[in-house]
């Protein structure tokens, strides 16, 4: 057994793990964070995507011991004060899921894409989500949700975005 110290969704943990423990199993079985799911055996599907020190990784392809001393964010750590993250909210509003199995990984990867590129084209969104498979939706509404979230996050971060839009709308109607 090896002792690891990891911060997961803002909480510091210290645990003894077998070195062969995959990060996804540590999250699910030791910490009970079952929001992160396993969808494949080959590291192709992306359902298990989490952020390790702020960048997306497939947690079925990382050992828990490799996360020692690092910070992990899972789908369970995205909402703040009971308020869904804009990407979560957009997936809800755009009906970007059917069975929902791919959703935790899709949302975590979408956040990663938007962090690097706040205003992605449709092609850039599709490419950024290349490592996340969805067997239900055909991706259409997933891409729409990421576009909607991107717009919301841009106007929230610029602060003036919404006002500018409102002024524009007012001018048009005037």
């Amino acid at each position: 057994m090896t002792r690891i110290h990891v911060t997961v969704d803002g909480v510091a943990y210290s645990d003894e793990v077998e070195p062969r423990t995959l990060l996804v199993h540590y999250l699910r079985q030791s910490l009970g964070k079952t929001g992160t799911v396993v969808g494949c055996d080959t590291s192709n599907c992306g359902a298990c995507t989490v952020h390790l020190d702020g960048v997306s990784v497939k947690s079925c392809n990382v050992l828990a011991v490799q996360a020692d001393g690092h910070e992990v964010t899972t789908i369970e750590g995205l909402a703040e004060d009971g308020q869904l993250h804009p990407v979560q909210q957009a997936f809800h509003e755009c009906h970007a899921l059917q069975c929902g199995y791919c959703t935790p990984g899709m949302i975590m990867q979408a956040c990663d894409v938007l962090k690097d590129n706040p205003d992605p084209t449709e092609a850039e969104i599709r490419e950024g989500l290349e490592g996340n498979l969805c067997r239900c939706t055909g991706y259409h509404n997933i891409v729409k949700a990421v576009q909607q979230a991107a717009g919301q996050m841009r106007s929230a971060s610029s602060g003036s975005g919404e006002t500018a839009d409102a002024t524009e709308a007012a001018e048009v109607s005037a």
Partner: peptide
């Protein structure tokens, strides 16, 4: 190569 997650590792 592969996808963004795999390129991160």
């Amino acid at each position: 190569v592969a996808d963004p997650q795999i390129r991160h590792r």
